[in-house]
Write a protein that binds this DNA or RNA. Sequence first.
RNA 1: GCGCCUGUAGUUCAGUGGAUAGAACGUCGGCCUCCGGAGCCGAAGGUCGCAGGUUCGAAUCCUGCCAGGCGCGCCA
Length: 591
Amino acid sequence: MNNSIKKLIEDVLYKTCKESGISREHLPPIFINQPKKKEWGDLSTNLPFSLSQKTGKSASHIGKLLTSSLENEKLFSRVEFIPPGFINFFISSLYLKQTLKKILIQKEEFTQFSSGKGKKVQIEFVSANPTGPLHIGHGRAAAFGDSLANILSKVGYEVEREYYVNDVGGQIKRLFSSVWARLKELEGEKVSFPEDGYKGEYLIEIAKQVKKELGSKLSEIAKGVDLEKEIAKEEKINQITEGFSSEKKMAQKKREEKAESQILGLLGRFAVNEILKEIKVDLKVFGVRFDSWISESSLHQKKAIPEILSYLQEKNYLYEKDGALWFKTSLFLPGEEDRVLRRRNGDYTYFASDIAYHQDKLRRGFDRIIDIWGADHIGYVPRMKAAIQALGYPEKTLQVIIYQLVTLKRGKKRISASTREGKFIPLKEVLDEVGRDAARFFFLSRTCGSHLDFDLELAKKQTPENPVFYVQYAHARICSILENARENRIKIKNPDEVKLDLLTTPEERELMKELSLLPDEVYEAAKSLEPHRLTTYLQELATLFHQFYTRHRVISEDRELTQARLMLVKAIKIAIGDVLGLLGISVPQKM
RNA sequence: GCGCCUGUAGUUCAGUGGAUAGAACGUCGGCCUCCGGAGCCGAAGGUCGCAGGUUCGAAUCCUGCCAGGCGCGCCA
C-alpha cells in the first residue's frame, strides 16, 4: 500500500544507523532529494553531514560506514559515498520494474496513502460575501482549496469543503440599500446612489428581477409607508393645533422604519439568493464543488453567539469597557490588542460570530480545520487563533493559509479589484478568455505566498503555449498510441506477461524513475499543503514523455518491445490522469 | 509608525541549509519518408534587492537597510 520510495530509503537508513550503533533519538530528520546531476544518482541524502554535527564524528567516517552496509540492499543498484558528506543512491531496475507493475495494477490507488486515515479535516475557502460575483482573487482561492481538498483525501483524510456565507452585517445592509436604489432608478425615480453602496452593474440586473418577481409585494408594503407618511402629515397639522407628543412621533417613525426594513429585508434576501446562485454557477463552471454551505444568519438564528459569549464569560475571558464587551486576546497572544465582541449598541461584531462559527466547526468533530483567506485578512489570524485556544483547543487545530492577492493587468495597465466600486473583472470573464484548465493550472503552479500578476493579455496570448496543454497533450498522445495499437489489433497483455526488462534506454529509465517518485510528490504536497508541487511534477513527467516519444517508437516490428513500451505509456497515462484529477483539471483523450 | 507577505534570467515564476541556481514564455538558430509538430534539439540571457552575520557550506537561517503588496475599526 505504501509506495513511497523515500520512505523506503529512510527505513533502510534508520535500520543501518541502528546497526551502526546510532540510536534513533540521535538521528536528525532525514532529507532525501533529487540531486541536480545524473552522476550524483537518482536520489541523495546529506545524512553524513547532519549526523556528524550530532555525533561529533567525521562526516566521511559516517558516510563510509553507512554506505558499506547499504550496498547489499536490493532497492539500489549502487550506493556511493561522495565526500565531503553525500550519499548517492542509484535505484535498481528491479525496483523500477516493480513500481511500473504496481501502477498498472493499482492505478489511482498507487498514490493513495493512509496517513490521514480516521481523521476529519475541514477546508473552508472562497467564502466570498454574497454582495457580488466572484472575481479573479476568489478564483485563486477556489482552485487552491479544491485541489488541496483532493490531495488531502488522497492521503487518507475525510475532507469536507465548506463555504461560509456572510449574510449578516454592514456589507449586506449596503447591498440592500444599493439594490433598493437601483430599483427606484428602474421606476424612474431620481435617487442619490448610496455613497458606500455597491456600484457594480450586476445589481441593475438583480433589481430588474426583483421588480419582476417581487414587484407587487413591494408596492403593497411601500403603500404602507406612504400611508404612514399621510398620517404623519395629518399629525403635523394636529401638532399645530393641539401639540405633538414625542411619543406619537416616535411610534410613527418606528412604523415607517419597520415598513422600510421589511422592503429591504425582502428584496435583500432575494438579492443575496440571486447572487449566491450566480456564485454557485461560477464555481461549477470552474469545477469546484462544496460539501457544505453554512450561513452566518443561521448561527444568529441558533443563538450561537450569546451562547459562546456566556461560555467565554464563564472562563473569565471577557470584560466590559465603554459599554462594550471585550475579548482578552492579549491573554493568549501577548502584544495583541483586546477586541470587541459586542458593541455598545448591542450588536455583535463579525469576530463574535466568527468565534461562534469556529466553535460550530469544532463541535462537528474535525481534527483539523483549514481556513483559506486572502491577504487582506492577515491581521485577523492571531485573534482567531487566540479564540481557538479560548475555546479549549490547541492553537494548531486551526491552520490559516493566506494567499496573496491577485493583481489583474491588461498589458501594463493595472485593473483595480474593488467589489464596492464595481471595478473588477468577474471570474466568469477570465474563464471565458483563458479557459478553466489554463486558469486552474496558472493558479496552482504558484505558491500561495506569491503576489501574482494576472495579465489577461498575456494569459490569452499564451493560451496555446500554456504548460497545461503541454501536459494534456502528452496524455492525448498516449491515448492516440493506445488507439493505434487497438487498430493494429495488438492485444495489450497483463503486466506479468510482459518483459519489462526490455525497457533499457535512458529515456525509459528516467520515465520509470519519475513515475516511482509520484507517491512522494503527492505525500509532500499534502504534508506542506502545497498543491503547486504537483504542477511542477506534471511538467517534468510530460517533458520526459515527449522526449521519449520523439526518440523511440512505441509500436514497432519488435512485438515484445512494443508490449513493454505500451506498459510504460499506460503507466504514464495513469499518472498524468491521476495528478490532473487532483488539480481539478480535465484529462482529454483528444485535443 | 507597527505587523505580515514578497523581491531569483527581458517577462511570469519554481527552488527541504548542500554539489556548477532551474522551467515556461519571449529572442535567435536547427529538426516533419515514421505511433498527433499543441512536439523535439541547440544558443544567448543571473551581482538570487543591498550590506553585514551564523558555518565545513546560504537564494534558503539571523540582523539592519531599500523597494513593492496587504493589514493595523465598536467594518466584514
